[in-house]
């Protein structure tokens, strides 16, 4: 029995190395990797996963298990990030159909889109799946390894906008905070000291110009840059905002591509 334990550990130690080799050695240009972690998974989880993936047409895959850590690795050669993401969510849905209270945590990526597929990166991905706090599927970005990231505070009453911007900025490597009204925003600016505040003007609590003035009067060393993203198109409001020192003013509906460019310009 001790032998088999050692044997298992041996496989374990080499697992991430194997994965790295497999990913790098694939004959396709891209290769996707999904790490799936479940706390209370059934013993035959990998068989179920295999079953689900086999049912898909034209899908080549490899499944490896890390039994010690209840983690599963799925390799999808020849798949770009969006296809991998879709597979991930399909997996999650099907598994939940089979067993409703299963709560799988998934981290996925496609290489070399997200960077280099080293063993360390594989381990970090698996770790992030295990440590994940929310049930949402997590896309591992290359910037996640880096530490010095610019931070953006997103302030808007509308959760749709907040969600979209948060996903987008996170994928671009910014660190994001959210607030849904004026007073929370002021608190967060003082506490988290973001580099840039992307805010609506129409908020509860305090809003509009008095709100902008308050931001600038807050007790922080470097006042954050303010970019206004709002429905207000009244010329007087726009000019008053610029007079108060706002960096940029974008009206809704907005083009996300243009927003990215303007934000990047603010940071340079």
């Amino acid at each position: 029995m001790p032998n088999s334990a050692t044997l298992q550990r041996g496989i374990q130690e080499n697992l991430y190395q194997h994965i790295e080799e497999w990913v790098k050695g694939t004959k396709h240009d891209v290769c996707g990797v999904i790490f799936l972690y479940t706390e209370n998974g059934p013993a035959n989880l990998d068989a179920q996963v295999r079953g689900i993936l086999e049912a898909q047409p034209d899908l080549s895959f490899e499944v490896w298990t890390d039994d010690e850590n209840n983690t599963l690795a799925v390799i999808l050669p020849g798949r770009t990030l969006d296809a991998v993401h879709f597979e991930g969510l399909l997996l999650k849905q099907r598994l939940q159909d089979i067993k409703a209270d299963l709560d799988p945590r998934i981290t996925l990526a496609s290489f070399p889109e997200q960077g280099e597929a080293t063993e360390a990166v594989m381990k970090q991905m698996a770790e992030s799946a295990r440590r994940s706090l929310s049930g949402d599927i997590h896309i591992f970005t290359r910037e996640e390894a880096k530490t010095a990231r610019s931070s953006i505070l997103i302030v808007d009453n509308d959760p749709t906008i907040r969600e979209f911007l948060q996903i987008r900025f996170k994928m671009q490597g910014y660190e994001t905070y959210e607030a849904n009204d004026g007073l929370t925003a002021l608190n967060l600016i003082e506490k988290m000291k973001p580099d840039l505040v992307l805010t609506e003007l129409n908020l509860y609590g305090i809003d509009g110009l008095p709100y902008i003035h308050h931001i600038q009067k807050l007790n922080v060393n470097k006042s954050p840059k303010i970019v206004v993203l709002t429905e207000q198109k009244v010329e007087q409001t726009i000019s008053q905002c610029f007079q108060s020192g706002v960096e940029d003013y974008i009206t809704k509906p907005f083009s996300p591509v243009e927003l990215d460019a303007r934000i990047r310009r603010c940071f340079n």
Partner: peptide, 11 residues
Amino acid sequence: VKCLLTLNYPN
């Protein structure tokens, strides 16, 4: 008054 100052209205 604070509530009235935060109405969603242009002008």
